[in-house]
Simulated scan of single mutants.
Amino acid sequence: MDSIKIQIPSLSENIRIIESFIDNAKERFSLNDDIYGNIMIAVTESVTNAIKHGNSGDKSKNVHLSLTIQDNQIVFTIRDEGNGFDHTNLPDPTSPENIDKPGGRGIFLMKHLCDEVNFKDEGRIVELSFYLN
């Protein structure tokens, strides 16, 4: 099992560090372009949510990102230090009353780009899984 970890303070400009982390993973594990694109969007979206919503932009709180490769899948685990949220009760961004609202599409996007999305620890931990085939 191969695993890499990083943590960043909750500042939106630190997303570029996450992008570099993903670029390094692409090189190290020879990820194909299709999966790489999905990973880049889903993971940066999840980290952005952790910074903005999870840690409420508090730069004294960190976002933790780890990547694990196991059994022909790559799993990114994103953890924030916030209060968590109810991931079972999110508005559908595709319903007519929400279509014009900014935001609210991140988790929807993640669910469509990943093979699996799991929330743990009351929403403070998100696991994004991608199958390598």
Rank of each mutant, 00 (worst) to 15 (best):
K59G: 06
S60V: 11
S60Y: 01
K61V: 10
N62S: 05
N62P: 00
V63E: 00
H64R: 05
H64E: 08
H64M: 08
L65T: 11
S66R: 02
L67D: 00
T68A: 05
T68I: 12
T68W: 00
I69G: 00
I69Y: 03
Q70L: 08
Q70E: 12
Q70H: 07
Q70C: 03
D71H: 10
N72F: 07
N72Q: 07
Q73F: 03
Q73T: 10
Q73D: 07
Q73K: 09
I74A: 09
I74W: 02
V75R: 06
V75Y: 01
V75D: 05
F76K: 00
F76E: 01
F76V: 03
F76Q: 01
T77N: 06
T77F: 06
T77V: 15
I78D: 02
I78M: 05
R79S: 08
D80I: 14
D80E: 05
D80A: 08
D80L: 10
D80V: 10
E81A: 08
E81I: 13
G82A: 13
N83V: 15
N83W: 10
G84P: 09
F85C: 04
F85Y: 13
F85G: 00
D86Y: 06
D86C: 07
D86P: 07
H87L: 09
H87G: 12
T88G: 03
T88R: 06
T88F: 06
N89D: 15
N89P: 05
N89S: 12
N89V: 12
L90H: 09
L90E: 04
L90A: 08
L90C: 09
L90D: 04
L90V: 09
L90K: 09
P91W: 08
P91Q: 11
D92M: 07
D92P: 05
P93N: 15
P93C: 14
P93D: 15
T94E: 14
S95E: 03
S95L: 05
S95C: 09
P96D: 12
P96E: 12
E97F: 13
E97R: 15
E97W: 11
E97Y: 06
E97P: 10
E97N: 13
N98Y: 11
N98P: 03
I99A: 09
I99M: 15
K101I: 15
K101F: 09
K101L: 14
P102F: 11
P102R: 07
P102D: 01
P102H: 11
G103N: 03
G104A: 07
G104Y: 04
G104E: 04
G104M: 07
R105S: 03
G106E: 08
G106K: 10
G106W: 04
I107F: 08
I107D: 03
I107Y: 04
